[in-house]
Design a protein around this nucleic acid. Structure first.
Lengths: 250, 250
DNA sequence: GAGTGGTCTAGACCACGAA
DNA sequence: TCGTGGTCTAGACCACTCG
């Protein structure tokens, strides 16, 4: 099984397991690349590819001339998949994601929508307004705009569907890249009613445009989270960066 | 000059310039790797290393079997350096960063501080409270805890210094990795007074732990931004991720 | 000075996409 | 089917760290 996985992934997986199992100890030095290559019976290039992944995940450091150092395990990585889909992320956190589609329908693209979806103003698009819940409690209002070809699929979906992302992927809509902007915005009247907060309360806002491998926009979304429900986590390094989303644990 | 830069960086730079100059056009297909290798007179491996960087920056896609596609230029990348230091980021945005040190002094690590700095509770640490400004207006309150060896350097610095990061680096304190958590928190009385807002207003909070190449924590900070002043931007892809911080432009 | 990671090359085979 | 990106190898040299 898993015979399809590339070699470097297997090496990375083994190393990750060994590190999180504490076989090297936090702060310890990793074996040299040459030695790892011998140990795993692969070339040094493959080992380096595996280590690059661990570097991105913040598990090890790297510095020319010095051995790699194991960074404290602590926070685990959250993948692009988990970041992209509220439902997948929630499940990975052991929460039960839910949702209710408040409104869905076609319309003409506003200037903002047209800009983000790279369409002419007035082009036919689909808008979806949803309330997302964790264990039954509303935590987020999601306003998404889809280009026509994607929106037509979404419009036919079950209003109670937990994950649009899964369904879209099953229809061949691929998500490849996303650009997120995170800030604070006061709740408007609609937000207040849907989330059960007061108008004017500061909400955590995430705006997101996702594109497919060909660079075509597939979604433009504006999500507003109730304070204290989620936090976004970002890991970055000189040379590599990573991000995820986490439940608020404080 | 810059003869010291690795080859793949030069290739990446050339490609980046060509792309942002529109030489390929948004949505266009990039030349094949083999062709780029011939064009630049380097091996395919080097071209791939350059393209990996562009992929991380969200400038091009990649899919096995298909040519790479140029993604819309739009938002430019913000580097780890800009993300790490408020002052450097501000300057990169054409803003004039300022700051005022409200309080600084040694103390014993609280449980939270000890956890994040990986020290025993009660260990000697330094706390710094600063107000950061853009063009003279306060936009952020920064509460930072440093381990002793770093804090002693910070404590001797000019209270009006714009960039602690630059000064620390000059003293050999290296920042290599950082983990950020972003959420919303109501302003307390101190925040309200320092930022000139009302207590209870929602502030954008960024908590951050930075470590050096050896994995030793060098800083634990909690920053609170006035709403509407900054937004964090994150770019991620299946296979690579990036993040930055941006001025609020809405 | 020895060890180690960073860079680069040349070539190979495979999996997938598109014509 | 053919071109393309993804993976892997073997070996080389350099820049840097550390004892």
């Amino acid at each position: 099984m898993a015979g399809k996985a590339p070699l470097y992934r297997k090496v990375a997986g083994d190393l990750r397991a060994a590190i999180t199992a504490g076989e090297y100890g936090s702060g310890a030095r990793l074996p040299a690349e040459d030695e790892l290559a011998r140990t795993y019976g692969v070339s040094r290039g493959t080992v380096r590819q595996a280590l690059a992944a661990l570097r991105t995940d913040g598990l090890v450091t790297s510095r020319r001339g010095a051995r790699r150092v194991v960074l404290g395990g602590g926070a685990r990585l959250q993948s692009f998949e988990e970041l992209r889909s509220f439902a997948r992320w929630a499940r990975s956190q052991g929460e039960e994601p839910g949702g209710r589609t408040v409104a869905v329908g076609p319309g003409g693209a506003t200037e903002e929508e047209a800009y983000h979806l790279r369409l002419p103003v007035g082009e036919r698009i689909f808008r979806v307004l949803r309330v997302r819940t964790l264990s039954g409690s509303p935590v987020m209002v999601e306003r998404t705009t889809y280009p026509e070809r994607v929106g037509e699929l979404v419009a036919t979906m079950d209003p109670g569907l937990a994950s649009h992302a899964d369904a879209l992927e099953a229809h061949g809509v691929l998500f490849s890249d996303a650009l997120h902007t995170i800030d604070v915005v006061p709740a408007d009247a609609a937000d207040a009613e849907l989330l059960g907060c007061r108008a004017g309360d500061g909400l955590l806002r995430e705006r997101r445009r996702s594109t497919d491998p060909a660079g075509l926009p597939v979604e433009w979304s504006q999500d507003r989270y109730l304070p204290g429900t989620v936090a976004f986590t970002v890991r970055n390094s000189s040379g590599s960066r990573a991000m995820g989303r986490s439940l608020n644990g404080s």
